[in-house]
Design a protein around this nucleic acid. Structure first.
Lengths: 234, 234
DNA sequence: GTCTATAGTTGGATAGAC
DNA sequence: GTCTATCCAACTATAGAC
């Protein structure tokens, strides 16, 4: 009944999709369910989106977009790397804990994207955005703590995302808050141990902020981790 | 046509389910598809399994059972912790790389189990088995390397599984073998750094192999050390 | 723009012949 | 034990009235 410009209707439907999918799982997010959630009839959804895939893609895009927005807001001018790392991980964790459904949904989207070529880009985008956010965080820490990382930044970024994903998934299954928290704390310590004060590396003489001293066998100059055909963050 | 005892038929069907699900994804593992894969007709599957859920549960059970079997085969009588850790992670990784489909399937099973109460136990079992395997491995390392871990064993075990899951998932998406390998190497170094020679802890006088001396601030109930300026990130 | 009605698929589950 | 035939539910997608 209520007439709306298409753009607004789309947003409303995306929001509805997000709600249903977070609550019922990705399989529960049928076109019908989304229409019902939004309080419109079936036809409206198909008027706003070419097909279900386009709706899902739009929904996924909104999610990653928001994850990008919720990046590192402000960082102290100067603080020890350890404190910065610990602080951000704490915050990240409390955020995850507070959003079970959406969190699970992102993993459902990842696995789904791996089985459906039409959604393939969704999974790639998720990681591109996550890794980029992690790298930005690492840069901030470098600046604020006056350090560099013992291993290439992108490797550290990838490690951060992997660890958070792994602990989150396990926590979704067993719901053990303490165990997850313990694990993340331990990881934070590890992360902090990867930071080396800039003075100590000064004598190595280099302009780049990338690490020059690899850990044992971790080679610093591995090829950059940009998957082919993933130039688009947009 | 070919008459078989139910038990064998069941195994055959489970095998078929495993194949289809690994290849086409969990959604592709319909009762019909499984029947086709096994070369039997639809009715047969329903004769051997009460319903689809029971088939999926049986399939999942087979997977975790095999993961349990493929535990740490042999471990040297004596070797440095670092070598042991590196060796096992290498092997684990090459195994994952060689089994994309099944690997992805386990994650699909995890997320699916989180949305369907009837399959809830599947996800729990996956982790129980994984954690147990990791703990057994850690015990072996303790013995062979003459060390104990700086943090409770179950925390380390959980970290191992989380890290492997995280890197695997990312690798499934971007297919970057090098990046995944780099990350796991770095993790191996971290793991090795958690080992402390038994001599150094002897004076602490304790019978348990669990760590009694938490790392720096990794205390179960330590208040979050969030620097003033960082809490703004929340 | 929005609705109802309906076409066309797919898939779970059962009945009953063999 | 195995097969064919069939029922029924749920879903995507479209057509056409309002």
């Amino acid at each position: 009944m209520n007439r709306l410009p298409v753009a607004e209707r789309r947003e409303q439907l995306i929001e509805a999709a997000l709600s249903v999918a977070s609550r019922e799982g990705i399989d529960g997010a049928t076109v019908r369910a989304v229409a019902a959630e939004a309080g419109v009839s079936l036809g409206v959804v198909h008027y706003c989106f070419r097909d279900k895939d386009e709706l899902l893609r739009a929904m996924a895009h909104t999610i990653t977009e928001r994850n990008l927005g919720r990046g590192v807001a402000e960082m102290p001018e100067s603080a020890p790397a350890r404190d910065l790392v610990l602080g951000v991980l704490e915050e990240l964790w409390s955020n995850i804990r507070a959003t079970r459904g959406p969190q699970l949904l992102t993993y459902e989207l990842t696995t789904t994207s791996l089985r459906h070529p039409e959604l393939r880009q969704v999974g790639v985008d998720q990681y591109v955005v996550s890794w980029a956010a992690a790298e930005r965080f690492l840069e901030e820490v470098e600046r604020a703590a006056g350090i560099v990382w013992r291993v290439p930044r992108h490797t550290v970024a990838r490690t951060i995302i992997a660890t958070i994903d792994g602990f989150s998934l396990a926590w979704l299954v067993d719901g053990d808050d303490d165990a997850a928290y313990q694990g993340l704390r331990l990881f934070a310590e590890h992360l902090a141990s990867l930071a080396v004060p800039i003075d100590e590396t000064a004598m190595l003489g280099t302009g780049t902020t990338a690490a020059d001293e690899p850990a044992a066998d971790v080679h610093p100059f591995a090829a950059p981790t940009v998957p082919a055909g993933v130039s688009a963050l947009a």
